[in-house]
Design a protein around this nucleic acid. Structure first.
Lengths: 331, 331
DNA sequence: CTGTTAGCGCCTTCAA
DNA sequence: TTGAAGGCGCTAACAG
């Protein structure tokens, strides 16, 4: 099924058929109708690879994410997918399992796949060779969740948001507050949130205990249970993401600590599921779907204007504390 | 950056360059090395649209899902993504929000995008016009979660699995057991699980109450809370999916009912998150990642052999009861 | 083992 | 308003 067949059937040239699909106003209504009918009868669909080859635009956006198993990224991807469809683009997502070499491979594969632009969540924009490669190639890209002065980023103010979480706990009366984090070195967000924690504690005149790093998902609950057995035990935990918060709550219950009566827990991310838990998760909400949506819109606009988005296009979206039921005054 | 430039730089013909990338063993080691070096120096990547145009294979798999906001599908998509990369394919996912007309549009878009095959989760394979279209076009596809005699499907035995869940509750001593479901008409899985519930109840000599349909996510907890106020209240709930189970637990607590002491709840899907909840979710586990992975492997093999998978390729994967902490003997 | 060449299907000047 | 024709980059005969 090619443009040739349609042209033949409609009794016009291939150029006319092409125009009907790309510049319909440049074709007289009668011929246009002819062509449209012929196309319909033949079930004609323009061949996208031929079009891509000719125009040098694939209308595909690459997406690089750590994983889809964390609802934060699933929500973001949903936003990306919706915005892409609305903008007339397809997406091609690849996961990296938080590994820098996988980021590299992912970008390579997507570049080989002729994507017009990329949305990505990387481990650390400051040191990412994948980003260097993209920039070198002049391929438009936008980062999600990451924040860095020399890249276009859609994110929230992780420092301020975490400091606000601390302030909330302090307001409830907590003084022994600990931060639970994944591997700090593996994510700029984790580092920013840790800094925010330090700021929040310092503003309250409190001394910050060392960060509790919980590197492995499989053993997280065990590690957290062990941590909760130490003395003096904190009365509140600030968790660097919602999954850690959920696991902290589980560890607390395993330790015989009721949340929030005996231990307050606040998460970070605002995954939708948190609202349906019992206790409902208190958390710092990021607009995950919007992060994806706005990133794609940025990219689509840039693509329409033939300019790669620069760092000045970065967006700092508002965060919010969602007060669930996992925080209360200290015992 | 084209094959021409590489050929010129390496002092060979374009055919040789092409061979180096596609049939390296047909090129003498010295020339191959020449070409590889030239390609590396130029940063050459084969143009995938040109290749697709020429070979008529895009090496892209379309994926049609209801949503990525339900972890079941996110997990499945993760499996799909991994298997696709392993098989040398890219994926292009599209969501349908459980709407049949969106399924139609999604398939249309993906067909226009030249995908080589599709993985999909549809509302109802028996009535899906999207599937008819695919079959008519001879495009290979595999269904995930759906189950139907005339289509290639990767799924579990929803009837048997749900009946097993009922049997477990009966074994604990429950006799007043209700089924909570999303819109039955919107999903073949929901219908199969409801049938399994009826079978399980009947096997136990129990009378099944009418199914409790909870159509809207936003109001689910309210609806469930209202249901739990009716008398006689069931002592156990079988939920058609894990998200409903989580919301049921929330509704129970809002009604002053401790889970599992006052009310047992069992879900269906086996989302990973369920294990970290408190109480840990008891549920019927499906191998979500494997469902995606195996579907893609089926597709990739079929594509290699140039035959669309038929219904005989269907796989019925094992399910399992994962006993969490949300079920106990009746009060 | 290597080179020449004809398209794959489409868009886009350039002419008519 | 419409048509003719070149070429996007690549692969696969075919020829040498």
């Amino acid at each position: 099924m090619s443009i040739q067949a349609v042209a033949r059937k409609a009794g016009v040239s291939v150029a006319t058929v092409s125009r009907v699909f790309n510049l319909p106003e440049k074709v007289s209504p009668p011929t246009r109708a002819q062509v449209e009918q012929a196309a319909r009868e033949l079930g004609y669909l323009p061949n996208s690879s031929a079009r891509t080859l000719r125009t040098q635009r694939s209308r595909i956006l690459g997406v690089v994410l750590p994983t889809m198993l964390n609802p934060v990224f699933a929500e973001c991807l949903q936003g990306i997918a919706q915005a892409a469809v609305a903008g007339g683009y397809a997406i091609s997502p690849v996961t990296t399992a938080y590994q820098v070499d996988e980021e590299e491979r992912a970008v390579h594969r997507l570049m080989a796949g002729n994507v017009d632009g990329l949305m990505l969540v990387v481990s650390n924009p400051a040191t990412s060779t994948a980003l260097q490669r993209l920039r070198g190639a002049g391929l438009p890209y936008v980062l999600a969740y990451n924040r860095h002065a020399t890249h276009p980023c859609i994110s929230v103010d992780n420092e301020a948001a975490t400091a606000a979480a601390v302030a909330h706990l302090v307001g409830l009366g907590h003084r022994r507050i600990a931060m639970i984090s994944g591997t700090l070195a593996a994510s700029d967000r984790a580092q920013q949130r840790w800094r925010g924690f330090l700021q929040g504690m310092s503003s309250a005149g409190l001394e910050a205990p060392p960060v509790v790093e919980v590197p492995f998902v499989e053993t997280a609950v065990d590690a957290l249970t062990r941590f909760l057995a130490t003395t003096p035990r904190p009365t509140a935990l600030v968790c660097s993401n919602d999954l850690l918060a959920i696991r902290s709550i589980r560890a607390a219950h395993r330790s015989g600590l009721q949340v929030p009566r005996a231990l307050s827990v606040i998460g970070f991310d605002g995954i939708a599921l948190g609202e349906d838990l019992t206790p409902a998760l208190s958390t710092v909400v990021q607009p995950n779907i919007d992060i994806g949506r706005l990133g794609v819109e940025l990219l689509v606009n840039a693509l329409a204007g033939d300019v790669a988005p620069g760092p000045e296009a970065s967006l700092l979206l508002p965060h919010a504390l969602r007060m669930g039921e996992s925080c209360a005054p200290p015992p």
